[in-house]
Amino acid sequence: MQKFFSNRKLVIVIVCLIIAFGMMTASVSLRNRRNTPFIVQQFGNDIVGFADRIVATPMNGIHGGFVSIQNLLNTYQENQQLKSKVDQLAQTQARDQVLTQENTQLKRQLNIGNTLTGYQKVNAAVITRTPSSWASQIIINKGSSAGVQKNMPVVAGPGLIGTVVEVNKTNSKVVLISNTAENSNRFAIQILTSSSVVNGIVSSYDSSSNSIVMGNITSKANIKVGDKVTTSGLGGVIPKGIYVGQVSQVTSDDYGLTKKVNIKPAADLNDIEAVTVAVKG
């Protein structure tokens, strides 16, 4: 025993191991409990984030250049496709406006203030992405000083891409819905079928088919492929009516008692440049 402890290197290694595991478990549990990290960590992250912009901005600029060239090559085809959609869009927009107006009028009559659908938008740019196989995380350039809070939904382009997981003063981390860790992705969504609405929770992410899985559905409603899925606004800071994606597959679970629905996310999770954080009003 005497000889064992006299070995200085071994003691150092063991002490380091204990500290490492202690720090890891502590930071995981703190992250689940606290709304913002400790002030020291926050301050450090703000400084690093600021320095990162010096490197990230030109890099993202170069990337933007390549993407524009690529877009230019696809322009003709895209134009043809889009032309056919524009007429439809104008109609929908007009109808949308009328409905929104009607909605606010009715709300005023009934004396209802903000409902679950009300939210403001905070636009942010993506600074960088976590270089790791385990965490699908991006870092955006808006933080608590812009009104961002933990667990807020983040939208890019057509639909939801993830939720805010850590907020610093001037930057925050966003966990993408493609993250497969056990403790992420538990937000409430609803499927809008032709006849009714089916509520549920995201249960996991299926990376082989690149889709969100919504499990344990006992509803008898007829869910079809192509039905639209939005957030349901139930339970927490995520507002109602943020578009998530479309149903891509409906199967029954392993025991045949409940249904399992695969949802194709609307946003491309691997090409995100600018995002919008939905701040619940």
Binding site: H63, T130, P131
Partner: peptide, 22 residues
């Protein structure tokens, strides 16, 4: 910083299923 920027720029290539290059 380049680690993060490269991951962000080429995220479609580096993190496409099933492979992951860091």
């Amino acid at each position: 910083f380049l680690d993060g920027s490269i991951s962000q720029m080429f995220s479609g290539v580096f993190y496409s299923y099933p492979n992951s290059m860091v």
